[in-house]
Amino acid sequence: MTGFATGAFVDSLVWTAAVTVALMAVTFAFGIVAGRHNVVDTVWGLLFAGIGCTALVASRDHGDPGRRWVLAVLAGVWGVRLAVHIGRRSVGRGEDPRYEKLLRTGHADPLVNALVKVYAAQAALAFVIAAPLQVGAFVTGDLGYVAYVGVALWCVGMVFETVGDAQLERYRRRKKAQPPDTVTASVMDTGLWRFTRHPNYFGDACVWWGLFLVAAEHWPGILTVPAPILMTYLLTMGSGKRTLERSMVTRPGYPAYMRRTSGFLPLPPRKESAGADATRR
Results as ranks from 00 to 15, higher is better:
84 V>F: 14
73 V>Q: 01
102 L>I: 14
94 G>T: 13
86 I>W: 01
92 G>H: 15
89 R>Q: 09
77 V>A: 09
93 R>S: 14
96 D>P: 04
80 V>T: 05
98 R>F: 15
94 G>C: 08
95 E>C: 03
103 L>V: 12
75 A>K: 00
103 L>P: 09
79 G>S: 09
102 L>D: 05
102 L>E: 09
78 W>S: 03
74 L>C: 06
98 R>D: 14
86 I>P: 02
77 V>K: 02
97 P>K: 07
88 R>P: 05
81 R>Q: 02
99 Y>M: 00
101 K>T: 13
73 V>S: 02
86 I>A: 09
73 V>W: 03
82 L>W: 05
91 V>P: 03
82 L>D: 05
97 P>Q: 12
75 A>M: 01
78 W>C: 02
77 V>S: 03
81 R>D: 00
88 R>N: 06
84 V>M: 15
83 A>V: 12
80 V>G: 01
98 R>S: 14
86 I>G: 06
79 G>L: 11
78 W>Y: 07
93 R>D: 05
99 Y>C: 01
103 L>D: 11
85 H>A: 10
85 H>L: 13
82 L>S: 02
90 S>E: 10
102 L>Q: 12
99 Y>A: 00
79 G>D: 08
96 D>C: 02
95 E>Y: 05
83 A>W: 09
89 R>S: 07
94 G>Y: 02
73 V>M: 02
96 D>Y: 04
100 E>I: 13
83 A>C: 10
99 Y>D: 00
77 V>R: 05
101 K>S: 13
73 V>L: 05
89 R>N: 10
73 V>G: 01
90 S>K: 12
97 P>H: 12
74 L>F: 09
81 R>F: 00
84 V>A: 11
98 R>H: 14
95 E>V: 07
86 I>H: 07
98 R>P: 15
73 V>A: 06
74 L>H: 03
85 H>C: 07
86 I>T: 11
